[in-house]
Amino acid sequence: MISVLYSLVFAQMALILALLFRTLLRNLLIVGIDHLKRGEVPLVAKTVVAIFVMEIHKRALESGVVNSTDEVLMAEKLLEASPMGFSLFLAMMTDRLHYYIKELYLVRNELEEVKKLKVDYGSKKNRTMEENEGTES
């Protein structure tokens, strides 16, 4: 279980690094993350996290006295919980990074549209000024 969690952590770290640099892979990842967010994946992730939390909480409540076997099991669960928590943190970072990149694309597109409108307005203004000067002469 621990090796799977560490593999998940390293995969998420690679995903974050791929999202940080502007490449074709980043565009592909953004589209893929968009599709994941629209599907049932968030529901599944929340369910898995809730099951793990309930399992740990249930074991702590079942036995009032902790013997040595339970201590070893609790240490193993704690060892599993650390990469799991870090994985959740990296998932949150990936989500926010995806959100900011999408917002950046939207702002850039709007900025380009404003620049085009400004150039169009400037050229119309120059044409009207030239027409006015031509009629006055």
Rank of each mutant, 00 (worst) to 15 (best):
S3P: 00
S3I: 12
S3K: 13
V4P: 01
V4L: 15
L5E: 12
L5H: 12
S7M: 12
L8V: 07
L8P: 00
V9Y: 13
V9D: 06
M13N: 11
A14N: 07
L15E: 11
L15W: 04
I16M: 11
I16W: 08
I16H: 12
L17W: 03
A18H: 06
A18R: 07
L20D: 10
R22W: 11
L24Y: 02
N27C: 04
N27I: 03
V31R: 12
G32Q: 07
I33G: 02
I33R: 03
D34A: 08
H35K: 07
L36N: 02
L36Q: 06
L36H: 01
K37L: 11
R38N: 05
P42E: 05
A45N: 00
A45H: 00
T47H: 13
V49Q: 14
V49D: 10
A50D: 10
A50R: 08
A50P: 01
A50C: 05
I51K: 10
I51C: 08
F52E: 10
F52I: 12
M54C: 13
I56T: 14
H57C: 12
K58G: 14
A60Q: 09
L61D: 07
E62G: 05
S63E: 10
V65L: 07
V66Y: 01
S68T: 07
S68L: 04
S68F: 02
S68A: 11
E71T: 09
A75S: 11
K77A: 15
L78W: 00
E80S: 08
E80I: 04
A81T: 13
A81P: 06
L88G: 15
L88M: 14
F89C: 06
L90V: 04
A91L: 05
M92G: 09
D95S: 13
H98T: 15
Y99C: 12
Y100E: 08
K102T: 14
E103Q: 09
Y105W: 05
L106N: 09
E110D: 10
E112C: 02
E112P: 00
E112V: 05
E113G: 01
V114D: 08
K115G: 00
K116I: 07
K118E: 13
Y121F: 15
S123N: 08
K124N: 05
K124L: 09
T128S: 02
E130H: 03
E130K: 13
E133R: 09
E133S: 03
T135V: 02
T135C: 01
E136N: 04
E136C: 02
S137R: 04
